[in-house]
Design a protein around this nucleic acid. Structure first.
Length: 290
DNA sequence: CTCCAGGCAGTGT
DNA sequence: ACACTGCATGGA
């Protein structure tokens, strides 16, 4: 992989184990807009990015060396060796082969903690397109305007301070429904320091999950999504209806299996790489299996 | 029309 | 422990 800083753009040549479309569309992130073939606009860490991929070349438009190195390289997890991750997973279990080979270009994004917390609270009992719609509306109404790409306007996800000013009524206007009080509780606890990102990062998975599930509307699944996508805990293993279905099909002879049993299996089978296995399985299963 | 969605809290045994 | 239910909203 070679990184070149050309004029206003940053360009990567010879990228491996990365596909911008798979990485954004695999369900880990809800805050981006598709602009063209493997071309996207998104915001993170209060910056706007226009990115396009052509084969093993990835163009970060209007991106300085500083922003690439400080933000986007980490956001897309480009420093991590995914070949090693895949080899590890496959060395114990070739039943993952099809999922990993098909979803070859998925990387786990390092997203902002607060955004993943609120986004995955919203995600419960909803389909991905609608989650994206709600996240977009919240951002447009209460987040900062960061610029436009090809006529599309982009807004940062609201900060914890910005959401602190939003009433439950206003949240409901964004179609959050019964999740509105859950969002309120999360925002309050984060702003009050009852939920602290530093503490969550320092904690092991078990304790991190305990802290997060103190928030109303945050259960095992939402907590694990938050840990995996927003706190860089790659052993986290969110079990939702899809993963349950997929794991039952692949590993439990298609028989209905308790969530706890699936969790235990994942822990023993995938270990500290559980989160990667989960995402390959989720995206593959959701796209091709049922 | 009914059914369900990257779940969870509340209630009842 | 475990099962069952209601929940806002939109799309199939």
């Amino acid at each position: 992989m070679q990184i070149c800083y050309e004029d206003d753009n940053t360009v990567i040549y010879g990228v491996t184990d990365f596909d911008v479309e798979q990485t954004l569309e695999c369900g880990q992130c809800f805050h981006f807009k598709k602009l063209g073939e493997k071309e996207y606009g998104l915001t993170a860490f209060h910056k706007l990015l226009h990115i396009r991929q052509d084969g093993d070349t990835v163009i970060f438009y209007n991106t300085t060396k500083e922003d690439f190195e400080n933000i986007w390289k980490d956001y897309f997890d480009l420093d991590r060796d995914y070949a090693e991750i895949k080899n590890y997973l496959l060395s114990y279990d070739d039943r993952l082969k099809e999922a990993i080979c098909t979803m070859n270009g998925v990387r786990i994004l390092k997203q902002e903690f607060f955004e993943t917390l609120i986004s995955f609270i919203i995600s419960q009992n909803k389909q991905i397109p609608h989650i994206k719609k709600i996240v977009a509306e919240l951002s447009e109404k209460y987040g900062d305007y960061l610029g436009e790409i090809a006529g599309e306007r982009f807004f940062a996800f609201p900060t914890k301070e910005q959401l602190m000013e939003v009433t439950q009524e206003q949240l409901r206007e964004c179609k959050t429904g019964f999740r509105a009080p859950y969002i309120m509780d999360a925002v309050n606890k984060v702003n009050a320091g009852i939920i602290s990102e530093a503490d969550l990062r320092a904690a092991d998975c078990e304790n991190c999950e305990k802290m997060l599930t103190q928030i109303k509307g945050v259960g095992n699944k939402v907590a694990n999504c938050c840990m995996l996508f927003g706190l860089e805990k790659r052993e986290a293993f969110p079990v939702d209806v899809w993963i349950k279905r997929i794991m039952e099909y692949i590993y439990f002879e298609g028989k209905p299996t308790q969530k706890e049993v699936i969790l235990k299996f994942a822990k023993e089978h995938f270990g500290s790489y559980g989160g990667y296995a989960q995402q390959y399985l989720f995206y593959y299963g959701k796209t091709y299996m049922f």
